[in-house]
Simulated scan of single mutants.
Amino acid sequence: MSYNNILSEVTNGIATITINRPKKLNALNKETIQELHQAFDAADKDPNTKLIILTGSGEKAFVAGADISEFADFNVGQGQELAAKGQELLFDFVANLGTPVIAAINGFALGGGLELAMAAHFRIASDNAKMGLPETSLGVIPGYGGTQRLPQLIGKGRAMELVMTAGMINAETALNYGLVNHVTTLDDLMPFAEKLAGKIMRNSSVAIRSAIKAINANYEVGVNGFDVEIKAFGACFGTEDFTEGTTAFLEKRKADFPGK
């Protein structure tokens, strides 16, 4: 499939999705959000894809925010629809994807860009990265899940400060806050992401898909995450991956998971 604003390729089981609007610092517009949805959906349905790395083109920005020109004249109803549709199409979609998603933050991740990175299952950043939610400086608040995911990741107090000041933090501060898992040089960012991907891909893709669902359940209102875990744990016993994993362990050999 060809895209206007992103690049997507699969190599050795890793789908790399790159937001490719360098002249706009990879800002998110409606078309880009739709294309990202299509690319993530295609990767998740591809049996040859075991992991997805999301990054931005160039050396300046992962995603520098949303394309403000598209919604500067919106009314209340249009604003609500923009947030609802965006969350459904992309941000919540990515967060609940069964295929693991690593965000490789290679520069500015601001507004919708940071919200997209936070929707990924975890994040790594280059040492030149800057992150923030500057929406209050525009008279609006984060609308793609930022007010919910940021406090889950870094705590309520720090999230309140970051949103209210509309400030930016650097990669080292993001690491200390727990917003990112690792910081590397820009040159090492993608090789490091691929190394992490390799470690993940050695394990059962079926079990990982269930683990993502169980972990996410802890953050869903009205859902008992422990119950979800118990059911998912039991379901694993009926998979070919469980049979292979336990047999390989008892036979003292490396497991060759069929992904079923």
Rank of each mutant, 00 (worst) to 15 (best):
E172A: 11
T16S: 10
I19S: 00
M190L: 15
G178R: 14
M164W: 00
G198I: 05
V10S: 02
M164P: 01
S57I: 10
I124K: 09
A95N: 13
A235D: 15
N20K: 13
A171W: 08
K195P: 01
V76Y: 12
D44P: 03
M131A: 06
K24F: 13
D256Q: 13
R123S: 07
P191L: 07
Y177M: 11
N128R: 15
I169V: 15
I53C: 04
G146F: 11
L116K: 02
L51A: 04
A117I: 09
L28G: 01
I200S: 07
K199N: 11
G107Q: 07
G157Q: 11
L25A: 10
K23F: 13
V10L: 07
A104M: 02
E161M: 03
M160E: 09
V101C: 04
A95P: 05
N181Y: 14
H37R: 14
Q38I: 09
A61D: 10
I230D: 08
T184S: 14
L116Q: 06
I200D: 05
G77P: 11
S204Y: 14
P258D: 09
K60Q: 12
P191W: 10
E81N: 08
D227V: 12
A119P: 03
G98V: 00
L250A: 08
V223A: 09
K50W: 09
R123Y: 08
T99W: 05
L7H: 14
A214Y: 10
K30P: 00
L250V: 13
G234F: 13
N20Y: 14
V63F: 00
H121P: 07
S137E: 01
F122V: 02
G143M: 07
R149A: 00
K130D: 03
G112S: 12
F257A: 03
P151R: 11
V76L: 09
E31C: 01
L51S: 00
N4T: 12
A117Q: 04
T99Y: 07
L250E: 11
G58V: 03
G56P: 04
P47V: 04
G77W: 15
P191C: 06
L36A: 06
L51I: 14
I215V: 11
K50C: 00
A120S: 15
G143C: 02
V228S: 06
N29L: 04
N203P: 01
L90Q: 02
P22T: 12
A129E: 07
S126Q: 08
E220H: 05
G234V: 00
A125W: 04
R149D: 02
V223D: 09
N106L: 07
P258L: 03
T184W: 03
A235M: 10
E59H: 06
E194I: 13
G111K: 05
A171D: 10
Y144V: 05
L186R: 14
F242V: 00
N218I: 05
V180R: 10
A255K: 04
T184Y: 04
V180F: 12
F242L: 03
L186K: 14
T136E: 01
N176D: 09
P100K: 02
N170L: 08
D188Y: 06
F237E: 12
P151A: 08
L97D: 07
I154D: 00
V140S: 03
A104H: 02
A120R: 12
N96K: 15
G178W: 15
N75S: 07
I33W: 11
F122S: 03
